[in-house]
Design a binder for these strands. Structure first.
Lengths: 95, 95
DNA sequence: TAAAGTAGTTTATTTTATAAACCAAATACA
DNA sequence: TGTATTTGGTTTATAAAATAAACTACTTTA
C-alpha cells in the first residue's frame, strides 16, 4: 500500500474545482468560473495564476466589446495532471 | 451542479492518509502510522492532535513496558466525516 | 557512564488560502 | 453633465495551515 504524494497544486479546493470544471467544459471565462466555484474574485485570480504558471491552464485576455474578458482553457499537461491526481487520491478514498 | 465544501480537516494529505489508514485498521499506534504515511513525527503529532480535537479519532497514551505508546482509533464521528468527504470529493473528480 | 536510539512534543518557519483594498473603464441615474 | 455604481479584474495584507527544526524525557547499548 503506502500513500502516494498528491500534487499540491491540485490538492487545493478551489484549484481542483477550477480544473474539474475546465475538464468538462474545455474553456470558461473568469466570471463563469467565479460563479460556478462560488469563489471571490481575488482568490480566483490568484489561483488561476498558479495553474497558469504550472502550465495546467492557458489564460487568454481579450476584450468583449469594451469589457475585458479572461478566458481559461485546460492544457494537455493540465489534463494529465488532473487524471494522475484522480488516480492518486482514489488510493486514499478506498482503502 | 456546484462544488460542495470539502471538510478542511480532511482535505489535508497527511490527515486524510491517517483517516484512510484508521478506517481500514481500526486502531494503530504512532510509529506504525508514521511509517505507513511516511511522515515526520512532528508533523504527525500536530495532525493527530487536530483530528483528536475534532473528535475524529481517539488518542490513547499508555506504556508498553517502559516505552510510551500512543494508540489511535477512529471514532464513529470520524467514520461519518470520512464517508462524507469521500462522497463530496467524488463530485470534483468525475465531472 | 557516555553515546545513541526511541517516542514523542513544542516552537519556529515557510507556504497557502483568504480577505481587503485598490484600479480602470463602463454604465446608470438624478 | 457629472457623480455614483457596477463590472472585471489585480495587488497587497492578513490569517491559517503545513512542515521542519529543535527540544524533552526516558531507555538501551557499548
Amino acid at each position: 500500500m503506502g500513500f502516494n504524494q498528491l500534487d499540491p497544486l491540485l490538492h487545493s479546493q478551489l484549484r481542483l474545482a477550477v480544473m474539474s470544471l475546465l475538464i468538462s467544459v474545455e474553456t470558461a471565462d473568469f466570471v463563469f468560473i467565479k460563479e460556478q466555484t462560488e469563489s471571490t474574485a481575488g482568490n480566483l485570480s490568484v489561483q488561476l495564476d498558479k495553474l497558469s504558471t504550472a502550465g495546467y491552464i492557458e489564460i487568454i485576455k481579450q476584450f468583449e466589446g469594451k469589457k475585458p474578458k479572461t478566458t481559461c482553457k485546460i492544457t494537455p499537461k493540465g489534463v494529465d495532471a488532473f487524471d494522475t491526481y484522480v488516480k492518486e487520491i482514489q488510493q486514499y478514498l478506498k482503502p
